[in-house]
């Protein structure tokens, strides 16, 4: 691979890093050489706070990543069914205040 090809997503959330919890506003996703997991290539996700440049990194096998995508979708679908319209705060509005 050896490329700088990445996918980026603007996100709103928090992650726990080496110094505790922090806001994260960007996810950087790429399928290339990992640093730690013993694979030649992995699906790597960096959850980044663009202000402090701190990140929480995850390196997954391709199969693990695909399974994760399916499970995230399933969790969202079931969660939406239960909680939709329950009066939760608007994440877009919260993002502007953090």
């Amino acid at each position: 691979m050896c490329s700088y090809i990445t996918e980026k997503a603007s996100i709103f959330g928090s992650a726990k890093g080496r110094d505790g919890w922090m806001r994260v506003d960007t996810a950087v996703i790429y399928y290339d050489h990992p640093v730690h997991v013993p694979l030649d290539h992995a699906l790597n996700i960096d959850f980044v706070d663009s202000r402090s440049k701190a990140r929480v990194a995850v390196e997954l096998s391709a199969d693990s990543a695909r399974e994760l995508v399916r499970r995230i979708q399933a969790a969202l679908d079931s969660g939406d069914a239960i909680h939709l319209g329950s009066g939760e705060a608007d994440p877009q509005q919260l993002a502007r205040t953090m």
Partner: peptide, 18 residues
């Protein structure tokens, strides 16, 4: 791109397109 662990700086470089 600043100081830090080489893998963190490498990730930063990648996010900026190298």
């Amino acid at each position: 791109m600043g100081d830090g662990d080489p893998d963190d700086i490498g990730a930063r470089a990648r996010a900026e397109g190298g």
